[in-house]
Design a protein around this nucleic acid. Sequence first.
RNA 1: GGGUUCGUAGCUCAGUUGGUUAGAGCGCCACAUUGACAUUGUGGAGGUCAGAGGUUCAAAUCCUCUCGGACCCACCA
Length: 763
Amino acid sequence: MSELPKAYNPKEAEPEIYRRWLASGYFNPDSLPAAGPEAYSISMPPANATGVLHMGHAVMIAIQDILIRFERMSGKRTLWLPGTDHAAIATQNVVEKELKNGGLKRHDLGREEFLKRVDVFVRDSQTTIRRQIQTLGASCDWSRERFTLDEGLSAAVRHAFVELYRDGLIYRGDRIVNWCPKDQSTLADDEVEYVEKKTPFYYFRYGPVVIGTARPETKFGDKVIVVHPNDKRYDKLVGTSFDVEWILGPIRAAVIADPAADPGLGSGALTLTPAHSFVDFELAKKHGLEILPIIGHDGRLTDAAGPFKGMKVQEAREKVVQILKAKGLIERIDENYVHHLSVCYRCGTPVEPLVSKQWFVAVDQPAKRLRGRSLKQRALEVVVKNEVAFVPERFADVYRQWMENLHDWCISRQIWYGHRIPVWYKDDQVHVGTTPPGTGWKQDEDTLDTWFSSALWTFSTLGWPDQTKDLKVFHPTSVMETGYDIIFFWVARMILMSTYLLGEVPFRTVYLHGLVRDRRGRKMSKSLGNGIDPLVMAEKYGADAVRLSLVIGTTPGNDQRLYEEKIASYRNYANKVWNIARFLALQDSTPTVGPAGGSLADRWIQSRLHALIRDVTKDLKRFRFSSAAERTYAFVWHEFADWYLEIAKVEKNIALAREVFGAAITLLHPFMPFVTEHVWTKLALGKKVLMVADWPAANPALIDPRSESEFASLQQRIMALRQERKKAGVLTRTMVVRLKKDDPAWDHQAIVERLARVRLAAA
RNA sequence: GGGUUCGUAGCUCAGUUGGUUAGAGCGCCACAUUGACAUUGUGGAGGUCAGAGGUUCAAAUCCUCUCGGACCCACCA
């Protein structure tokens, strides 16, 4: 032990410790020796198969590992299930980009060959992700690792689809959807982002009215003018039709009345572009009007645009404006109009609202299995009734507001990578089922939205639809821990699916962490180059330091700023823990005879320890990780090391020092698993690995306010003497302080003299 | 437009249901090195808790407004 190096070297120690944990088998709840009947489980949010772990993942791993280790040490049968998500669009994009570099498109390879390429990429990526998660010390059960495209999970997806379809909750329909012309796929509402962009806004004369638009190129097929029924200006026009001069010559325009038109806005009249506007599409359907696509799925104009056919949107726009200008139909142009442009959240391409055949989950449809309530109603109910609790609570409101406004969920995507929709066609027959009904049937070309499969994650990973033992024991999972930015994408959809398919919530509590930002509060991003790589930091300062820096000084649901010095300061802390262990290792631990019941310092440190155990345990149960970590940090460094160990150099109660230190690093273990496990072994503090040591129990009998206040006065006395010495300028040598005979400092003469670096003398 | 959130020491942030003198880390200043640790120790400076008003015996904490920052949702033909 005396050959322990002066400084802790995490880079050397950590991989070895992780190997020992793996070898112990204790990551797997089935081999936990001391586990009681109570189960505790967390589904690790599956990392995207595209890649590389960032600080957001590190936060998630740190927090979940804290919960898991705490519960495991508390005797629960603890499962933390890791995995990866195929992240269809994102992954396909990456591989397509690679192909593009070689001058290829996916259609050059064909579906099968392309998917093979994706598989190779994904397998490689998964290996990286696995190693990264391990580097951070995650005590998850690798024997249960899952991937959303595994055979088992794919079967779950098909099963879920078929069940929902048979219950009338999935349908195929003609709908206007957000279409990304670049990804060649639809996007869900929340996959669309809005960016502000200055675009010219045109006012055109259209017969008797003036219409405004930022999209002139979509207006070829506008044949209907809508006005408000109470708008007197247009009273006489409603129900009539007449010829108006338009882009390609005169067209017949009809006037209808609908309250959707706002009389106060512009001229109070609008023309309908049914195939390229959500509002117009609904109106057109309502009034039974023709829906004529002007823009195709390739982002180019269709036959309906006559001579403009095949032209790209931007080009067509300029041409249309030129023509209308030449015809004198332009009223005016607002060049400074700030437009909220819809763009694809993956690639940033402007989204086209287009009409197409898609599959939908009906969220408002009453369901027999939910006793007549809809998916949406049930998903709202579980949160309102607190069957699912949010931490922090305010996100329950955010969730509720969003769920109330949820529209039917478009689940089909026109990409290759992902779960193929389990629908087969033959002639004019359609079969929905987990397998084709016979030969000659052709499967639907589309794949499912990635979130459809991740919505099943908490139970598909446990073997559903089979009623496995794991499913019974570990579902509902205990906690879902993830970033608040995916409440809608993921959390809400898991609740939707689980409450329907299993009739139970997917998790009892949702804990949401905030985003990790840079020192200036900006989002970390590749383009800004301001990202801090968790693995580079772990390499430099140790995984323990990275984890602690992500936990201390943060509160649930709030963003945090991270910078390297913060991580470095916790590296120093790990080193402190290490050096305490070094000191203890060098001492003779044979118990020394002290005062009965222990010295004042003994009683004090035990009182402080047991108060700490009580407080940290309470903090962890309430998800107050920062508080728990800070308390432990302060205790180890500023109470145990700074005071108790200094006194131990006088009183020599090394046996108690070891005992207290052992308990303290047990409390610290969920936060800093590596260094604590390391010194636990080096000091031979227990028989088992620390990872499965018993969580300490607070003994209220040892919490002793009288000893604490008595010790506090001793500390005050010592600090006052240190100040006196500093004031006197006696710096290097021991100063003589004259005290009266009845001064209480005499009771602890040796301690006072050593800690204050003074010599006491009789006055 | 609807909603959420933040504004506490130079910097990054804690502050549990309102309750002694508002805390931590980093940074700063001064000093300390023969035996756990300079990735250290000791002492110190530094805050009218964004501003105004209100509720209360008592407000960083609750309410209202103002100023400033961030985010989410919706969306203008």
